[in-house]
Amino acid sequence: MNKRLIASIGVLSFFMYISAQERVLSIDELFQLADQNSKSIQLHALAIDESAQAVKVAKDARLPSIRAQVDLNYIGDGCMTDRDFSNGIHADMPHFGNTFVLKASQVIYAGGSIHANIQKAKLQHQLSQQTYDNNQQDLRFMLLGYYLDLFQLRNQQTVYEKNIEQTRLLVKDMRAAYQQGTALKSDITRYELQLQNLQLGLTSTVNRLNVLNHKLTTTIGLEPSVHIVPDSTALFHINVDKRQEIS
């Protein structure tokens, strides 16, 4: 019963893995997708934009300011009466009125506060850029580790599959030899146990592949159903330090 259960789990996990959509992804494409879709990268990029806007606002304090004010009013006709409200007299008055005020001002001397605020905003912008770069580098090293582990596990999966195929042939040969009296029952049992261990190893490898693949896809913004296939030709040209200028 245990043999059948292990075999069933291994076959189910294997077919679930190979039935998913595969996508060959180079390291450069991996980093590009991370820059575009990573939530942490987007948050730090937003902080850079906000600090750049703060620098602009601080510099605007040196410019002259202009204020304009427009007032419109309406006055109805007048009416005068005695104290007992008798003998009312109608008095015509202008109905519409308007005023327009334009003021221009500029700071002549502020004790260096404007310059200090500009420098403070620039330093905050530089800090935001540095924080972005550090976060980007940390994320890339993490993704690169996942990527290399994925490459290693896929190779390990291939080795397991070949060994399982060879062991199945050995079990078949042992059974035939046992029927002919040239092999012992223990020989068949030994190879069947070896086959079970290989199938269990394959199941464990596929499960680890699924976990790593899920971590990668969720970080770079792909659907979890997509199985990433590392580009073996790109492993010899790894460059993590690719910082991009963000205005």
Rank of each mutant, 00 (worst) to 15 (best):
N155D: 12
G76C: 02
D84S: 10
D187E: 14
Q106A: 07
Y147K: 05
L150N: 03
L216M: 15
E223T: 14
T217F: 06
Q137S: 12
A183I: 03
Q124H: 04
N134L: 12
L25D: 06
S86W: 00
A121I: 02
H237N: 15
D35Q: 10
K215I: 00
Q156H: 04
F141N: 10
Q136L: 09
Q129S: 12
G88F: 01
A91M: 13
K185W: 05
H95A: 12
T217M: 05
Y146A: 09
H95P: 03
L193G: 10
F151S: 14
E50K: 15
Q156N: 10
P224Q: 04
S247G: 14
I48D: 04
L169V: 09
V229C: 12
A47E: 11
H115D: 14
Y74C: 04
R208V: 06
R140F: 01
H237R: 11
D60G: 08
N2H: 09
F14C: 02
D149S: 14
L202K: 14
A7P: 00
R175T: 13
Q129A: 04
K162D: 04
Q137L: 15
I164D: 04
G145S: 11
L209Q: 08
G76W: 01
S51Q: 13
R4I: 09
K59Q: 09
K215C: 12
T189Y: 08
T205P: 02
L63H: 03
R140Q: 03
V226D: 05
V229N: 08
N210D: 13
G78V: 00
A61V: 02
Y74P: 03
D71W: 00
Y132A: 08
G201I: 03
H125W: 00
L5P: 09
K242W: 05
H95V: 00
L209Y: 03
Q156F: 06
E223F: 09
T217Q: 06
K56E: 04
S13K: 10
E245G: 13
N207F: 01
F141G: 01
L143M: 03
L235N: 06
A52D: 10
I9W: 11
T219I: 06
T218N: 15
I188H: 02
T158W: 06
G221I: 01
Q32L: 11
L153K: 05
P224C: 08
N87Q: 12
G181H: 00
R168G: 14
L198S: 04
A58M: 01
S51T: 13
V211Y: 11
L198V: 07
L5H: 08
L202F: 02
A121H: 02
D133A: 09
A7Y: 07
F15C: 10
G201S: 12
L127H: 02
V226H: 07
Q157Y: 00
S204Y: 03
N134H: 03
Y178H: 14
Y109D: 09
K39M: 15
Q36M: 06
Q199H: 05
N213G: 07
Y160M: 03
L46E: 02
L235M: 13
R208W: 07
F236L: 12
T189W: 07
D71C: 01
A34T: 00
V107N: 11
D82V: 01
I118Q: 08
A177F: 01
P94T: 05
T217D: 06
F31L: 03
Q69E: 13
S105L: 05
S13L: 08
E165S: 15
V240K: 13
S13P: 01
T131P: 02
I164V: 07
A68I: 00
Y109W: 13
S247H: 15
